Amino acid sequence: RKWEEIAERLREEFNINPEEAREAVEKAGGNEEEARRIVKKRL
Rank of each mutant, 00 (worst) to 15 (best):
E4T: 12
F14M: 03
K2L: 14
L43Q: 09
E4Q: 11
E33V: 08
K41Y: 07
E4K: 11
E32Y: 11
E20D: 10
W3T: 04
R9F: 04
R42D: 15
R9P: 01
E26G: 07
E4A: 13
K27C: 06
K27W: 14
P18L: 15
N15F: 08
R9S: 10
E5S: 08
R36E: 04
K2P: 12
V39Q: 02
E19P: 05
E23V: 09
G30T: 02
N31D: 14
I16P: 00
K27E: 15
V39I: 15
L43K: 06
E33P: 06
A35M: 01
N17P: 11
K27F: 14
E23G: 08
E8P: 01
I38E: 09
E23P: 01
K41D: 15
V25Q: 01
I6S: 03
R37G: 06
E33L: 09
E5P: 03
R37N: 10
R9H: 06
A35V: 02
V39H: 02
P18D: 12
A24Q: 02
G29S: 12
R36W: 07
N17I: 08
E8D: 11
A24T: 05
R37W: 08
G30A: 03
R22K: 12
K40G: 06
L43V: 06
N31E: 07
E20I: 10
E12T: 11
N17E: 12
R9A: 09
N15L: 09
L10Y: 00
N31L: 06
E8R: 13
E26W: 10
R11N: 03
E32I: 08
K2G: 13
E4G: 09
I6H: 02
R1A: 14
R1K: 14
E12N: 11
W3G: 03
E5G: 06
K40Q: 15
K40W: 15
E4W: 12
W3F: 10
R1D: 12
E32Q: 06
E23N: 08
G30R: 02
E13L: 06
E34C: 06
G30F: 04
K41P: 03
F14C: 03
K40T: 10
K2H: 13
N17F: 11
K41R: 08
E20A: 06
E12Q: 13
A7Q: 06
E33T: 09
K41N: 09
R42E: 15
E8A: 13
E19G: 10
L43E: 06
I16N: 01
E5H: 08
E5D: 10
V25S: 02
I16M: 05
R22F: 13
E13R: 05
N17A: 13
V39F: 03
R22I: 12
L43W: 05
R37Y: 08
F14D: 01
I6K: 03
A35I: 02
A28G: 05
E19A: 12
E33Q: 12
A35G: 02
E13V: 06
N15Y: 06
K2E: 14
A21V: 03
K41L: 08
E13M: 07
A28H: 01
L10M: 04
E33K: 08
N15E: 09
G29R: 13
E33I: 08
A24L: 04
E34S: 06
I38N: 04
N17D: 12
I6M: 12
E26H: 12
E19H: 12
K2V: 15
R22N: 09
I38P: 01
A21I: 05
R11S: 10
E13Q: 07
E12P: 01
R42Q: 15
R11P: 00
E5I: 10
A7I: 12
E33M: 08
A7L: 07
E20N: 04
L10P: 00
R42K: 15
R22D: 06
R1E: 14
P18A: 13
E23M: 08
K27I: 15
A35R: 00
I6G: 01
E4L: 10
E4M: 11
G29N: 13
E12S: 12
E26Y: 09
F14E: 02
E26M: 12
I16W: 02
I38F: 07
A35T: 02
W3L: 06
I16F: 02
P18N: 12
G29H: 13
G29F: 12
A7F: 05
A28S: 09
R42M: 15
K27N: 12
E33N: 09
A28P: 01
R9L: 08
I6D: 01
I6Y: 03
R36K: 06
R11V: 15
R42A: 15
K40V: 15
R37K: 12
A21K: 00
A21F: 02
E33Y: 12
G30W: 03
R9E: 05
E13K: 05
R11D: 02
N31Q: 07
E20H: 06
I6L: 11
E32C: 05
E19L: 10
I38S: 05
I16A: 03
A7N: 03
R36D: 01
A24R: 01
E12Y: 13
L10T: 00
W3K: 04
L10V: 05
V25P: 00
E34H: 08
W3Y: 09
N31S: 09
E33R: 10
A28R: 00
E13P: 00
K41C: 13
N17V: 08
E8M: 14
N17K: 15
A7V: 11
R22M: 15
E20W: 15
K2F: 14
A28V: 03
E5Y: 07
A21S: 06
L10R: 00
V39S: 02
E5T: 07
E20Q: 06
E13T: 05
E12R: 14
K27V: 13
P18R: 13
A21M: 02
K2T: 14
E8K: 14
I6E: 03
N31I: 09
W3C: 04
L10G: 00
E8N: 13
N15Q: 12
P18T: 13
G30V: 01
V39P: 01
E34W: 10
E4P: 05
I6F: 04
A24W: 03
E32D: 03
V25R: 00
V25D: 00
